[in-house]
Design a binder for these strands. Structure first.
Lengths: 103, 103
DNA sequence: TAATTATATGCCTGTCGGGGAATATTACTG
DNA sequence: CAGTAATATTCCCCGACAGGCATATAATTA
């Protein structure tokens, strides 16, 4: 089964779905409309996202409302952290350099 | 060919390679040793990483020295940014809440 | 209960990408 | 130039998906 968050996000459609959910909870059919994908396709992607913990769902009549779960996105962010540290260090160095120039 | 940074990073071996390169420039054979992968495998992954812009290489005698290129990692970070904004907002709210408690 | 809406699932098919082994290529050395 | 070290590339096989379509399931309403 898909566990790895990175491979889950490798699919553009899934990132698009998450981007939509960032704006708020959404039903499947809303996603189908907004993303111009087939309903089965959306459902399948949602299943992957759900099993990977990126989204959760609740039932509302016949609809299922999907909601973004930030936790898993943080997993990606954690992998990125040391890299981000690298470029912020470079930025800091640049700033210090510019400060010196002003003297 | 592989363009999308996310699918490039979907492969764990490639993330491992980047993690190694974070520590400094490295030759192919060093990576083979450290990651316990076959040489062809490493070379193939490096090719993908190179074509996607995650790494660059220079020639040093028979060796090729690979080097991390941060730019592309930033692409991932940029996608992540709005999400990160969300959880830092939550953190801010929590802080404000705790501050109130202290009063 | 029959009909309808909303969503999930199963099946099939085609494609893509990774691993392994062998081989090609490039650069260095004697 | 012959030999060797380091890396790249090719070929083949196979498993993992994604898309499309049909169908199942669940909840709702008439």
């Amino acid at each position: 089964m898909h566990q790895d968050p990175f491979s889950v996000l490798a699919e553009p459609a899934r990132r698009n779905i998450l981007d939509q959910l960032r704006m708020g909870e959404t039903s499947v059919s809303e996603l189908v409309e907004r993303l111009d994908l087939s309903q089965p396709s959306v459902s399948k992607h949602l299943k992957v996202l759900r099993e990977a913990g990126f989204v959760s769902s609740k039932v509302a009549a016949q609809r299922r409302i999907y909601r973004l779960e930030l936790e898993r996105v943080r997993a990606i962010d954690e992998w990125l952290a040391p890299y981000r540290a690298m470029w912020t260090r470079s930025l800091d160095a640049l700033e210090r350099h510019l400060d010196k120039m002003e003297e």
